[in-house]
Design a protein around this nucleic acid. Structure first.
Lengths: 145, 145
DNA sequence: TTACGTGCAAAGCGTTTGCAAGAGG
DNA sequence: CCTCTTGCAAACGCTTTGCACGTAA
């Protein structure tokens, strides 16, 4: 497969651009969806790729990125970005239930945490408006404790 | 300045490696420290570099990275990593006062927020141990509101 | 059949590194 | 002086992209 190349476009994309992400059904798309639904926590593209290879043995990492972006755009999955780590993705069914995350510093796994503290607005300086918030708890999970 | 090259080493470094970060005093190091101390919020390496150029007109971006890493290792500054964003740095004097961050989604600036909600342990599943937490608030700051 | 999705390799970006020249003490 | 630091450009890892081919509809 040798062919001429053009310069790649700028990485940044307009926030509301329609984008050409996969919408059609395919073995690869189904594999990614199933992997995400079977998982007990959010997964990075590399983690998704490793697991999806069982169902779609030829799937490429870039395809995972494209599918995941498409799923995120149509709201089927949502991105979980922990500080200093690559983005992870989880099904919207999970994300729609407001929750936060616990990051085990021993095993590196991420767990979903139900509930969230009240009165966050009280922390704001005057004239600031609160639209959303992220809380990440760190420590040891039950298995590593 | 043309000279022979060798392959760069692997990026990953042993977590406890002494590392050869700058410790000696220099115009560049002073410039970075002053920029951080004058700031009202954590700054990314690129932001630090832009501001440090006024005090040290020849400073390179990689030097900023090295100095900031050294300062972080010796505890003079600490890293603030907001989800999905490059790391930012703030003086330890600020970081030592427990606080969180507000990210203005209009202007992109990050502000320090004093205080934090009580009872986060109550959110944990049984047998999980809480060691620390990060809270990031999103919305509009006073100027953008 | 035809438009869309895929796989691969190349490109982009933020960050780190090797090296020679410069600065600190 | 001798050693540590700097600046530059190359290299890295993660992510996105261009293109020809495969495939869903």
């Amino acid at each position: 497969m040798n062919r001429p190349r053009k310069r790649a476009r700028k990485t940044a994309v307009a926030a509301n651009a329609p984008s050409t992400a996969p919408r059609r059904r395919s073995r690869q798309r189904d594999a990614v969806l199933e992997v995400l639904e079977r998982s007990s926590g959010p997964l990075s593209p590399a983690e998704i790729h490793a697991r999806a290879l069982r169902r779609a043995p030829t799937i490429g990492l870039s395809t995972v990125y494209r599918i995941v972006r498409g799923l995120a755009e149509e709201g089927a999955v949502s991105a979980v970005t922990l500080p200093g780590q690559p983005a992870r993705y989880e099904p919207a069914a999970v994300a729609d239930t407001h929750h936060h995350h616990f990051h085990c510093e021993r095993c590196g796994r991420v767990f979903d945490i139900a509930g969230c503290p009240a009165g966050l607005e009280r922390l704001l300086p005057p004239a600031f408006t609160l639209e959303r918030h992220d809380i990440v708890l760190y420590g040891s999970c039950a298995e590593c404790g």
